[in-house]
Simulated assay, not measured.
Amino acid sequence: MAPPQTHWVIVALETFFCPLPNFTLPAPHTFEFRTYERTRPDQVAERIRDADIIIMTILPLTAEILSAEVSPQLKMISVIASGTDAVDLAACRARGIVVGNTPHCNVTTVTEHVLALYFATRRSIILTNSLTRAGDWVTKGSQQSTMDGPDGKPPRTAREELVGIIGYGAIGRNIEAKAKMLGMKTVVAGRKGAPAPEGRVPFETVIRECSVLIVCLPRSPETLNLISEAEFHQMKPYSLLINVSRGGIVDETALVSALKEGRIAGAGTDVYSQEPAEPGNSVLLAPDTAELNLVTTPHLAWYADETLDNYSRTCGENIAEFVTIGKPRHQVC
């Protein structure tokens, strides 16, 4: 029987996202680090040819890349993120490649970003800033009408809001707690098209009744276009949509139409169907959205010093436990 492996080639493919974990492996384990600030899809195969462990964040790892022909030594993938939709998990399971992620590391900062997007949309901060700089205050004498919702009424205060949380993981639970501290009422949505379990409210009821919808659930085949044309037609005219999940869960074309037609009051998003997003590939950033109450940020809700420290520590723990006991602390498959 071959002796157990004690030397590991660890390849980090996207270090610009997060500094490499500062860790050591217990004896007799040793390792060689190879680091790349950025890696294009066409560079992956060459860089992981003899890798035992890969560290990545959003770089697509397809079934072809994960095949024994391309990555014959690969045993583990450490994802510096909660979401693992960039990794073909079925291909990993087929080969016995272990995948670990770094959950709960960004809970605080994503929650704070959600609240920032809420206040920015409810108070029309970005839109009134642009119009004020353009001289619109002088022209109209007041910006009050800009802040009115499609129902013609002034913005609501936090204690008047009913917040519907779609996705009740660590981030969803933390959002609920912080929203309640602001005096908001909260409900948690059940699965779309299914009876709501105890403690949840049917998805369709949440869409119809809530004044703020916060989307914070993973992307999967079941959640693609979860909120689309039908849902926007049911929402209150004073409702807001805040999306910090993944691109593709909210139908972007339907969202823009809802804003243009006054079916909802505003939206804030940190995620896009295609990333990096720019006016040429995203309807959310097209020139004709400039005067909508639409706040867009570049998928940085997670970004904070605390988050980077958490990611680095958790990634190190995953790798150390994998090489010693064969299972990362946070195993996905």
Rank of each mutant, 00 (worst) to 15 (best):
V11P: 06
I165C: 07
R159T: 12
H299R: 12
F33Q: 11
T289P: 02
K180E: 13
E229F: 09
A179G: 03
A194M: 14
R156V: 00
G141I: 03
E46C: 00
I227M: 09
S82Q: 13
V87I: 15
I214G: 04
Q5T: 12
F119V: 14
F203P: 11
G96A: 07
A230P: 01
A94E: 14
R34S: 12
R329E: 05
D50Q: 13
C216F: 10
N281P: 08
P328Y: 04
N106W: 02
L115P: 07
L74E: 07
V332A: 07
D305F: 00
T128M: 13
T111M: 09
P279V: 04
L66Q: 08
P279T: 04
S273P: 00
I65Y: 06
S273Q: 13
L59M: 11
G149C: 00
K236Q: 14
R123W: 11
C210N: 04
T307H: 00
K153T: 10
I65S: 08
C333P: 12
T324L: 07
L89R: 11
P3G: 08
F119I: 14
L162E: 11
A134E: 14
L241R: 07
L240R: 10
T205F: 02
G268Q: 12
R200S: 14
P28L: 01
L115R: 11
I53P: 05
I10W: 04
S67L: 07
R133P: 02
H7V: 06
N174Q: 15
A12L: 01
A179M: 15
L255W: 09
L13G: 03
K140R: 15
R40T: 13
I126V: 15
I54M: 10
D42E: 15
L308R: 12
A265C: 05
V70P: 00
T84V: 15
Q331S: 12
W302T: 04
K236E: 07
E209S: 10
T62I: 02
F33W: 15
P41G: 06
V138N: 14
F119S: 12
A267T: 02
E291K: 03
T111C: 13
A254Q: 00
P279W: 03
I10P: 07
R38N: 13
L292Q: 02
T139N: 15
L285T: 07
T24F: 05
L224C: 04
G268Y: 10
T132C: 14
L61N: 09
P103G: 01
R47K: 11
D270F: 09
A45M: 02
F31L: 09
C92P: 10
A286N: 05
P28Y: 04
V110C: 12
K180D: 03
F33N: 08
V110M: 14
E32W: 00
Y238S: 06
G183T: 06
N318K: 08
N174P: 02
A189S: 12
Y303N: 11
I166V: 15
R123A: 13
F203T: 06
